[in-house]
Design a binder for these strands. Structure first.
Lengths: 250, 250
DNA sequence: CTTATAGGGTTATCCTACAACCGGATAATA
DNA sequence: TATTATCCGGTTGTAGGATAACCCTATAAG
């Protein structure tokens, strides 16, 4: 595979920014079909173990080619929502047997859901802080300190402030010495970032995300001191204060 | 969509059981191609922002039809590993912008990873127990008690014992009143179940998973009493003891 | 300089065809 | 009668060809 011919300039690394020529939110057919099938599974029309209509039938129902249906099913299959059996059909899988955790962005904006996810993330952040205090290395402390120093410079901006906060938390998670914590917390941080930005725009919310350097400084000091209890308390306080600033009651 | 024509008897709800005629682990081409591309992304041949070879090129490289390549890319796209731009190509996405969390089963069996996931799950289970003690309803308590009663009957079996344990934990998570906790814990529970079963078979491990009804009983009592601290402590002790039984040091 | 057009490359969709698999029904054999 | 083999129809998996739609760049025109 000779693959470095792509121009990174075409930068799809920012998938949230549709290009003008693509009519905004108009989705490709294969994605629409996947979404519609997924909705009927969520709605209970197809229960675990149920067989979906054949590809041929779905192609007729949706008035698309069978290729489009196959690609849509490939998406659902990748998520473990369905499993295909050659010669038989595609079958709905039990939710707990799915292969991935996915947080729906629209669902996250619904009442109470941001709070719930905050609650879950909080438990993991606090755990990560405690572990980081026990396991951090010198280079990791330097990395956290670097992330902390970025927060001084970003103080007057909004998006960059959130990003600096996420970077700090990522550095702490990395010091926890648990790769799954890194993966989970990174994912959760970014999902919440997108939602906070969206809710802010949608509601014309003018709240400035105040960066409280002191809270982060306190976490850093507890990590430096290698004191897990202090680290957990500092993180708990920080998360609690952050929730308050977003009018989320924990 | 008229879809209840499927026979649930064909039961793809047990995807771990290949049928004899399918030559065991021989995978469809589209899945193989997706795996091979994904590996080259993980290996760093394609970095975030990089463009993959065109579909036409990939079809030549892998000596398959372009349809197979498109379905493989549909899988990667569904995971948020790549994003497609019509007319341009498919581009690798930054890991933190991915759309889902996925735990690789093989990776989980590698040294220390089961412990790490146990650690993460522990933090969430303990949090869920504390919340459940605050938020549980009468029907939810009955549900938990039902799950608890199943553990008496399943005491002498292995798989069923693990499943009864998972069912208990799921019931507790549901009483926590946080749908994300349910989703995450259910997923984590099943991933670990599969790994524990696999490791046991692989290593000819004869350890019997002892079901300690007393530990679960204690959790239930704390929930009934509505005592979050007691619930958290009971859960912490239970998880710690469970880890010990599996030779996992937390 | 700005705008329009052409051209080449790429993804998205459509179509046709056949291979491979599956389960059930039927026929053949012991 | 029970067991095994074969056939058939339905379904997924793969291949290949074609065109539409999109994108970017280069060139021409105003």
């Amino acid at each position: 595979m000779t693959a470095k011919t792509g121009t990174s300039k075409s930068g799809a690394a920012k998938p949230g920014k549709p290009r003008f020529g693509q009519l905004g939110r108009d989705q490709p057919l294969h994605k629409k079909v996947a979404t519609l099938i997924s909705k009927e599974i969520v709605n209970g029309q197809f229960l675990p173990g149920d067989k979906l209509p054949s590809e041929h039938e779905l192609a007729q129902i949706f008035e698309v080619s069978r290729n489009v249906v196959r690609e849509a099913i490939a998406c659902l299959r990748s998520d473990g929502v369905v499993i295909s059996r050659q010669g038989l059909g595609a079958f709905v899988v039990q939710p707990e047997l799915r292969q991935a955790i996915r947080i729906d962005a629209e669902e996250l904006q619904q009442s109470g859901n941001l709070r719930s996810l905050f609650e879950l993330r909080s438990a993991l952040e606090i755990e990560a802080a405690g572990l980081a205090a026990k396991r951090r290395t010198k280079p990791q402390l330097a990395r956290i300190e670097q992330a902390l120093s970025k927060m001084t410079g970003a103080e007057k901006m909004l998006d960059a402030g959130i990003d600096a906060d996420l970077d700090f938390h990522r550095a702490v998670a990395e010091a926890a010495g648990n790769e799954y914590l890194v993966t989970f917390l990174t994912y959760l941080g970014h999902q919440m970032r997108e939602t906070i930005l969206t809710v802010r725009e949608t509601h014309g919310l003018e709240t400035v995300v105040e960066l409280t350097i002191a809270e982060h400084q306190r976490i850093f000091e507890a990590l430096t001191a290698g004191d897990p209890d202090a680290a957990r308390n500092a993180m708990r306080d920080h998360i609690g204060a952050a929730a308050q600033r977003l009018n989320i009651e924990l």
